[in-house]
């Protein structure tokens, strides 16, 4: 009979978050650059280069410019990327190469707290990136305030959702190269087909239904509505979707990592 201590999560997970923040502060000047420059590149390429071909886009009965259409999607994509990459590559490096989790497990921290701290940290990176991107995008007048400010807490929720999936994948991945697989099968299709660069309605009906299952679709809808200053009842559905997503994947991630770390 194997004796296991019961699942233990206390506020101590914050210590793990703090550790990651301490390391982040060492390299913050570099970490700041991508979310600062990326929206500029995209807005330049799509706003100047592509929008001449595309023209305006029909969004909820209004004609809006192509730049206004994609700017909120860029934020949503970054929420997904930051948390997902932090809790796959970042967490994997800490777990597998640096043995950071092993060191933590020799202290009063529990595995559950370590994983919770990691996921909340991944979500924090989504929030940091979101705030920087919003500052840049706001310079072009593409976000309406104060509704737009709600994108910040949304980034935390979205970050927890995508970070939990990432952490779950980390829990079953044996080699760092294998992360290419979920990126190719899960992240890239979402990047392209979640109503990011063209309206979902342009897809065939079956693909529209498929896209409705993707978390990024809902995140894009939310950031787009909030950027346009809209607050509608349908947004509650998207929020509910994310809550359910987190309720499923967060415990699953913790459970998987528990199995992986405790031998």
């Amino acid at each position: 009979m194997t004796q296991m201590p019961s699942v233990q999560i206390s506020r101590r997970f914050f210590r793990v978050w703090q550790r990651n923040f301490s390391v982040y502060r060492q390299n913050w000047k570099i970490s700041f650059i991508p979310p600062l420059l990326e929206p500029l590149f995209y807005l330049l390429a799509f706003g100047v280069g592509l929008s001449a071909l595309v023209g305006d886009i029909q969004y909820k009965g209004n004609e809006i410019s192509y730049v206004r259409f994609i700017a909120p999607a860029l934020i949503a994509i970054n929420i997904m990327y930051n948390a997902f990459f932090e809790n796959t590559y970042g967490s994997f490096v800490r777990m597998y190469y640096q043995k950071t989790f092993d060191a933590m497990m020799a202290t009063p921290l529990s595995v559950e707290e370590i994983i919770t701290g990691e996921i909340i940290w991944g979500a924090t990176k989504s929030v940091i990136a979101t705030a920087i991107m919003m500052a840049v995008i706001s310079l072009f007048g593409l976000i309406r305030y104060p509704q737009g400010l709600l994108i910040i807490p949304l980034a935390l929720l979205g970050g927890i959702a995508f970070g939990s999936v990432g952490m779950f994948i980390t829990g079953i991945t044996t080699h760092i190269e294998l992360f290419n697989l979920p990126i190719f099968l899960f992240i890239t299709p979402m990047f392209l087909f979640s109503g990011t660069f063209f309206p979902i309605e342009n897809l065939p009906l079956w693909a529209q239904h498929l896209a409705d299952f993707l978390p990024l679709t809902h995140l894009v809808n939310l950031t787009r509505s909030l950027s346009s200053g809209l607050l509608e009842a349908s947004m509650l559905w998207a929020l509910g979707y994310f809550l359910v997503f987190c309720i499923i994947f967060f415990p699953l991630a913790v459970h998987r990592m528990h199995r992986r770390l405790i031998k």
């Binding site: 043995k99 950071t100 020799a106």
Partner: peptide
């Protein structure tokens, strides 16, 4: 522990 699991950064 056996390995030097310090925080390298």
């Amino acid at each position: 522990q056996q390995e030097n699991n310090l925080d390298p950064d």
